[in-house]
């Protein structure tokens, strides 16, 4: 399988999946209902936390919106595998596997589509944050967006591989919730880990999303060269490279 035909197939499948997403615009908007609700119904509580370590010295929205942005990525990209299970059941995957299509393109076409949808959702989310009172410099917002997009690519790849391996909604769902919930809580998405007791902070530092959330927060504060941004970016890049590489390998093997 040469690169040219893999790119050709990726483009074909990307456009095909994107058209499917455009048909269900409502789902794209409803997909961000959960993070929006967090912004609207939980965010205002944080504005009262003046003087709490990690909050008092900043605008609370600068701390909270980055967490919600990463949460959007984790949950939206984490759940994309459900669509693949539906396609497996409908025979779409086998139909494609019988064609000479590049196996990597089958995965990449879906992942790139998901990333595209996520960019739209992330921009809407940031716009909602700005409307609620978030103040952050444009470069900081763009860095946050870039990290979110990168992370989405990695998480979506992992989600598809897990879907491919479990093949059943119930198994996939329980696996997913047992992974995403601890990742979310330990990343300090909702409340910064600077408030955490020592042991929790230590555990949190063993999970990758902690660094991503910290990086986006630092970027929103305008500390572009600060160590959280550098470390967070490095963790994201390594995580994404490893996920996509491993995901593509597993996917190619599962669909060979």
């Amino acid at each position: 399988m040469n690169i040219a035909s893999a790119l050709h197939d990726t483009r074909l499948l990307y456009m095909h999946h994107l058209r499917a997403s455009l048909r269900t615009k409502v789902a794209v908007v409803f997909g961000m209902l959960q993070p929006l609700l967090y912004l609207l119904l939980f965010g205002p509580l944080l504005t009262r936390l003046n003087g709490v370590r990690g909050f008092g010295d900043h605008d609370p929205w600068q701390v909270f919106v980055p967490g919600i942005l990463v949460q959007l990525v984790l949950f939206r990209s984490g759940f994309v595998g459900f669509a693949l299970i539906a396609d497996l059941r409908a025979g779409v995957v086998d139909r494609l596997r019988v064609t000479p299509v590049s196996r990597a393109a089958m995965l990449l076409g879906m992942v790139l589509r998901d990333t595209t949808v996520l960019v739209v959702q992330a921009i809407l989310l940031l716009a909602a944050g700005l409307a609620l009172g978030l103040r952050a410099p444009l470069p900081g917002l763009l860095i946050g967006l870039a990290l979110a997009v990168l992370l989405a690519t990695g998480i979506a790849s992992l989600s598809y591989v897990l879907a491919m391996v479990t093949r059943r909604e119930d198994a996939f769902a329980s696996l997913l919730s047992s992974v995403t919930l601890p990742l979310m809580l330990l990343s300090g998405m909702l409340l910064p880990m600077s408030m955490a007791p020592g042991w929790l902070d230590a555990v949190s530092r063993c999970t990758p999303l902690r660094y991503v959330v910290d990086a986006v927060r630092a970027a929103f504060l305008g500390d572009y060269a600060a160590s959280p941004v550098v470390v967070g970016t490095a963790v994201t890049v390594v995580l994404v490279a490893a996920s996509v590489w491993w995901g593509a390998r597993r996917f190619v093997r599962e669909t060979a």
Binding site: R23, T24, A90, G91, V92, D94, R95, V98, T99
Partner: peptide, 17 residues
């Protein structure tokens, strides 16, 4: 793959496409 066609028992068309 280039020389065969295949129709699975349950078909292979996505319902919403």
């Amino acid at each position: 793959r280039r020389r065969i066609g295949y129709v699975a028992q349950g078909g292979g068309a996505a319902p919403g496409v």
